[in-house]
Simulated scan of single mutants.
Amino acid sequence: MSRSPSRRPLPTSSSKRIPVRRQRRADPLRRLARHTVALELSARLGVNVLVLSVAAVSLGRLVPYLQTQVQQLEIARTELAEAEAANTRLRADFDRYFDPAQAGRVIQEQTGYRSRSERQVVWTD
């Protein structure tokens, strides 16, 4: 029997081969490479959520502190306005008491002293 290159023997039931797929061992680096994007994304998301929660807690603590500071500032401004008004009044009194032109009038107001040249006038009907 001569075989021609174009003819192949027909497979028989005993010579029938089933291709066996060999399973490669999964390389841990390849498996990790498949999940790297997901791991990186979840890590970034976790860090951002942590930063956001820290910022929210910090703001929650700072808002009441800010409100008390604003109230204390308003109280200080009110007291400052009162002190400035008192200072203005005291400065006017100081200028009046130590003004030589008004010294005689101040003495007369406080002691009732009158100079000898003044005469008291009493009006009668």
Rank of each mutant, 00 (worst) to 15 (best):
L50P: 01
A38D: 10
T12I: 04
T12M: 06
R89A: 15
Q110S: 07
R34E: 12
P28D: 03
W123E: 14
D27M: 03
A86E: 15
G46K: 09
L50E: 09
N48L: 06
S42C: 01
L45T: 04
R44E: 10
G104A: 10
A26D: 10
R96C: 02
Q72Y: 03
L59S: 13
V20P: 00
S6V: 10
E40H: 02
V121P: 00
D125K: 09
P28A: 04
Q108L: 01
R3T: 11
S2K: 13
V51A: 08
V51E: 07
D95T: 01
V51T: 05
V37K: 11
S13W: 10
P9S: 12
A81P: 00
S58F: 07
S117H: 13
S15F: 01
N87D: 08
V106W: 01
I75V: 15
P100F: 00
E82P: 01
V47R: 05
Q110Y: 05
A76P: 00
T36F: 03
A92V: 06
I18N: 06
R7Y: 04
R7E: 08
R89N: 10
S117E: 15
A85M: 04
I75F: 12
T111E: 06
L59Q: 10
T124K: 13
A26I: 15
R34D: 08
V47P: 00
Y113D: 09
T68C: 02
Y97P: 01
L39Q: 02
R24F: 04
L62K: 09
I18T: 11
I107V: 15
V37G: 05
A76T: 02
S42R: 07
R21G: 04
S115N: 07
P5C: 00
S15Q: 11
L90E: 12
R21T: 14
L10Q: 13
S53I: 05
T78V: 04
L41K: 11
F94R: 06
Q110H: 05
R3K: 12
